[in-house]
Simulated scan of single mutants.
Amino acid sequence: MRAAVYRSYGPPDVVRIEEVPTPVPGGQEIVVRVHAATLDVTDATARCGSPGYSRLFFGLRRPKWTVLGSDFAGVVEAVGSAVTRVRVGDEVVGVTGPDFGAHAEYVRIHQDGALAPKPANLDFAEAVALADATALAFLRDRARLRPGESLLVNGASGAVGSAAVQLGRHFGARVTGVCSTAHLELVRELGAEEVLDYTTVDFTRSGRRYDVVFDVAGTSSFGRSRRVLTPTGRYLSPVPSPGLLVQMPWTTAFGRRRAIVAFTGLRKAAEKTRDLLFTRELAQAGTLRPVIAARYPLERITEAHQHLDRGKYGNIVVTMTGAGTDTTRAG
């Protein structure tokens, strides 16, 4: 099978298309023919091996896993003799976990892995664009966002941010989105009551107060954002800076305003499966919509990584069908 392989850290061109063995399922394993997978900031971090401390996980001198990609959507191709959860031909969405492997024509996972039926109203690219549950885990589980609370999402047009805006509205919060000039209208369409252009407004000096600041972009800090938090406000970020890692236990023990970081990709497969099922319900109800920046066929994976390095809104999706790039906002 074809796969996007990298064997050393570096720029986008370290990723090459190679022929590798097609996986064969063991007794409790499932092989999925991948139709679409996402390319995200975790893939970029793993590819670059930067920041340096990330190599403690990804591999000190060279990559521990040579095929990137965590979120995938496709069709069950083969199952092991003890598999009871799915059948050949089922359309599914899944997450491989920390060992990657989805940027390939086939991926193998254990039947107890993170897997759910694909939303019936979405194609494979659209479905995989909703597979990442970072926003859900932060807002529902870590912030415990409640109806009537105020939520600010910094980086509201990105893959995680666009989901956070929609989920915040679903949970009954008053949502403010922060993004670039080009994406103000998109964030409004997603449900933000107010949208701030970060090129002209510094939200930390706006004078407004928020119950939750979700700094998806990682361009602010707890120290800067503290002034706009309510007395019991929560500052969330998926970007684990050293300062934030120190502030989190300190504010939990001694402060009313809290700094929160979480490694959502390391959660148990059962938790991820529940999130996939929850997301599927919202997608089929029309409450949650995918935002896709571009679709790249696997053979143009280097271009996809270059796009990611330049910055993006929404999701970058890698397809295995050879379809051309699609820059439509929503899939």
Rank of each mutant, 00 (worst) to 15 (best):
A270H: 15
V212M: 15
L245T: 14
R62A: 10
R33S: 08
A129P: 03
F138A: 12
T134K: 12
L115W: 14
E19F: 01
G101L: 09
E281Q: 14
G322Q: 10
T96P: 05
N154P: 03
L298Y: 09
K118N: 03
R208K: 15
R33E: 07
T279N: 03
K268M: 08
G265Q: 12
V160T: 15
Y6M: 11
P12A: 07
L308G: 01
T199N: 04
A73H: 06
D202G: 12
G27R: 00
D99I: 14
T327F: 11
V20G: 11
R234E: 11
A46M: 14
D71V: 01
R205C: 15
S162K: 05
T199R: 00
A156Y: 04
P238V: 13
A36G: 01
E193M: 03
D309R: 05
G265F: 06
V5M: 12
P240H: 09
A294D: 10
T204R: 05
T273C: 14
F58V: 00
T325W: 00
A116L: 10
G80P: 05
R257E: 11
A143K: 07
I260A: 10
E299T: 12
H183L: 04
P12R: 10
R267W: 15
P231Q: 02
M1F: 02
N154H: 13
R300Y: 12
F222L: 14
R274T: 14
L276Y: 09
G59H: 07
M320S: 14
V178K: 07
F57D: 13
F58M: 04
A164T: 04
S180Y: 06
T176D: 11
L277W: 02
P51M: 04
R140E: 04
A156E: 06
R280T: 06
N121M: 03
V24M: 13
D132A: 06
A270M: 12
A304M: 05
I30D: 04
F263I: 08
L229T: 11
Q28S: 01
T199Q: 01
A253V: 09
T42R: 15
A114R: 15
W65M: 11
Q28L: 01
V291C: 03
G26N: 08
Y313R: 06
T264R: 09
G89V: 00
L136F: 10
D112Y: 08
Q166M: 12
N154R: 11
I30T: 07
F203C: 05
T252L: 12
K272W: 11
A143N: 05
F222T: 13
G52D: 03
D43N: 12
L308E: 02
P290I: 00
A127K: 00
A182N: 08
H305V: 01
A127E: 06
R329E: 01
V14N: 06
A285N: 00
V317M: 03
D132V: 00
G113E: 14
R300Q: 04
S70M: 10
L186I: 04
R169I: 08
P12L: 04
A37D: 02
G97A: 08
A293V: 09
S225E: 15
L266T: 15
M1R: 09
F203P: 13
Y296H: 14
I292Q: 05
F58Q: 08
L190D: 01
V291Q: 01
F278Q: 02
E281S: 03
G52A: 04
S237T: 15
L186R: 05
R55K: 09
I30S: 09
R295G: 06
A262N: 09
V261A: 11
E194K: 01
I316A: 10
R280N: 00
S81K: 06
P98Q: 11
I316R: 03
G49V: 00
